[in-house]
Design a protein around this nucleic acid. Structure first.
Lengths: 367, 367
DNA sequence: TTGTAGGCGTTATCAC
DNA sequence: GTGATAACGCCTACAA
């Protein structure tokens, strides 16, 4: 596997024009002048202030529309301190689940006439602090933190909170006064997946994954869910783990590891009937190992996984536990917007279930 | 294939606190008061104005830092009309290539202390117009339009341009005065891919794809590149196309179509040695058709494709032409930032090559 | 080299 | 109901 050197070829310049003359935007003063009324009346009319003559309101709105007026959000932000912008901090803008979070937030924001500014933390604490400052300097009204930089240092979050910025945290298992948290529910979700496998008649189920040195709640819960389900069903656990996996692995590395772990399984005399992988990429590694041995999924063996990134686009498409990233983004944005609008929802934490998505990598698709 | 009904379970509220008292941010006035100098001196010192005493500059900066000052971008934006924010308009925040564009822009923006606001057009002209207005109301300094809503109505882009906002367009084959455009180079890139196949000894190469009723430049160029390469090599074209495919297909639909088209090929007595799919999802359909016939890639047949969305995560990983989305985002952001900073680069168009990424779905990986 | 005053577009608080 | 006027945080002539 090798990559061609990237080439960037400049195209021809097809036209040159002098810098365009800047045209000023329409302001409430322009409208006021046109209508020969005071600009504060215009401001009130546009904001549907109750104490304004219906007649005036209509005239102003009509004129505003015909002149192509659009409120400058920075003007009002300067006065109100709120600007209908939410900031989202994610580790990076590459991993699909981060983009799901942003997408979810964006959807809700749009429906509420809010905007989104997104920043990377690059998975570092400094990055997260910097991103927070950037967002503060933009006077955002709320911040969604979806960047798992660690568990201890949350000063920047507290500073934001104390400056009156609403903050919501996604998938970080902390408990800070005044900070609402949305976390995935992985334990019961994993048990749910296991039950599905039991229903399909599986009894020998291998868990392919890893053990992190750092406490990662999702990892812990998935392992616990697998363990509890097997125990309750009176079955023997079959953990095939890469111990002490460092943070910041790439998908490629995880595929590699999933492959190796599965190959270990394939050297056994007796194979399990199903493999539950800890995430998409481990599952992909499993698929590759099976493919190289010409084992057919799900006819010869079932492969399912937690998380749902590229699983829909596999041959065959994988049954997964889709994590609630998009929904978390939606919920967090909705929560912040409500708070910003003055609806002081209670602060606490909310658990969001994963979604069992059944595709063609398990037995039930054969019937 | 079915989905469980999504369940959203509310978690327990673990703590309630009264609304946090709002703490005012530090402004230049606070610093001025603290240092007993005028606030304009502070403003100048912070902006490294040349006509300021070195001594004062240091004192001010030190104090600013110790007080945790951060410039309010809305304050300065109100005065200067620029706010170091770029807006990006994409069709949606779901398709990975859109996110690549945003990611590329974000990377460059970050390096230049700019921020990004992203909006959806939802693939409609109205959406694009609305997004443009939203961005204008945020007083963005520049806009990247990466939303292919059509070719005719570009008034909103002209309005933005005329208001002094720098605009760059990605992958839309238009020519507007004052608007810089970045477009992918698909013709030569496709020929490049074909040459690679020839080098591997392929002579019977089927093209699996579609013919759009609407003129889509990438589609046209890919078809033309395939045709020209085959012709120049003295080989016979083997086009397996779904004619008149409507716009807005889903990945699932494209997989389905790619599957069907490939199955047609598989009914032949003599099979081609390679398949070039028009995009990832058509290639995925091909993989599924081949898998169901137990044909091994690349041993029995080679599969490659244009575009590079989920191709890296296939079994086997697919050789592709990676489209320059991330790079386009980077280039567009860089261009806009330069212009905004006053470096008046000439306006025109630039072509960005696709990148041939060789993976394991073609013969050369076997050696 | 530094200080003063005016203004950017909007909202809010007075009067009238 | 409406109209002045004073903020908001910052920048920038102009003056000192």
């Amino acid at each position: 596997m090798f990559l061609d050197k990237h080439t960037l070829k400049k195209g021809g310049v097809i036209n040159k024009i002098p810098k365009v003359v800047e045209i000023m935007s329409i302001t409430i003063k322009d409208i006021a002048k046109e209508l020969d009324i005071s600009f504060s009346t215009v401001s009130r009319a546009l904001r549907d202030d109750p104490q304004i003559a219906e007649e005036t309101r209509k005239r102003v709105k009509k004129m505003a529309k015909s002149m192509g007026y659009r409120k400058s959000s920075i003007g009002s932000a300067l006065v109100t301190g709120k600007n209908n912008v939410l900031g989202v901090i994610v580790t990076d803008m590459v991993r699909p689940f981060n983009l799901s979070i942003i997408g979810g937030a964006e959807k809700v924001a749009r429906d509420n006439e809010f905007n989104i500014i997104s920043c990377n933390s690059r998975s570092t604490l400094e990055g997260e602090k910097y991103a927070t400052e950037v967002l503060m300097s933009q006077n955002v009204s709320g911040i969604i933190v979806a960047s798992l930089s660690g568990f201890k240092d949350v000063d920047h979050i507290l500073v934001a909170r104390d400056k009156g910025v609403e903050v919501a945290v996604i998938n970080r298992f902390i408990n800070i006064d005044g900070i609402h948290t949305f976390v995935g529910e992985y334990l019961n979700s994993t048990i749910c997946m296991m039950k599905h496998l039991f229903q399909e008649g599986h009894e020998e189920i291998a868990f392919v994954g890893f053990d992190k040195p750092l406490i990662s709640q999702p990892v812990v819960e998935r392992l616990a869910g697998y363990g509890r389900a097997m125990k309750e069903a009176g079955l023997k656990e079959d953990l095939v783990l890469r111990p002490n996996l460092e943070m910041n692995t790439t998908p490629e590395m995880e595929i590699e590891i999933g492959w190796e772990l599965t190959e270990k399984i394939l050297t056994r005399k007796h194979l399990p009937s199903a493999i539950l992988a800890i995430n998409d990429f481990f599952a992909l590694g499993a698929l590759r190992a099976l493919y190289s041995k010409r084992l057919i999924v799900p006819n010869d063996i079932t492969v399912v996984c937690c998380s749902d990134v590229v699983a829909p686009y596999q041959v065959p498409p994988l049954t997964t536990l889709r994590e609630p990233y998009h929904i978390a983004g939606e919920c967090a944005a909705q929560f912040l917007i409500e708070r910003i609008k003055g609806n002081m929802l209670p602060i606490g934490y909310e658990k969001l279930d994963c979604q069992l998505v059944i595709r063609e990598s398990c037995r039930c698709s054969l019937r």
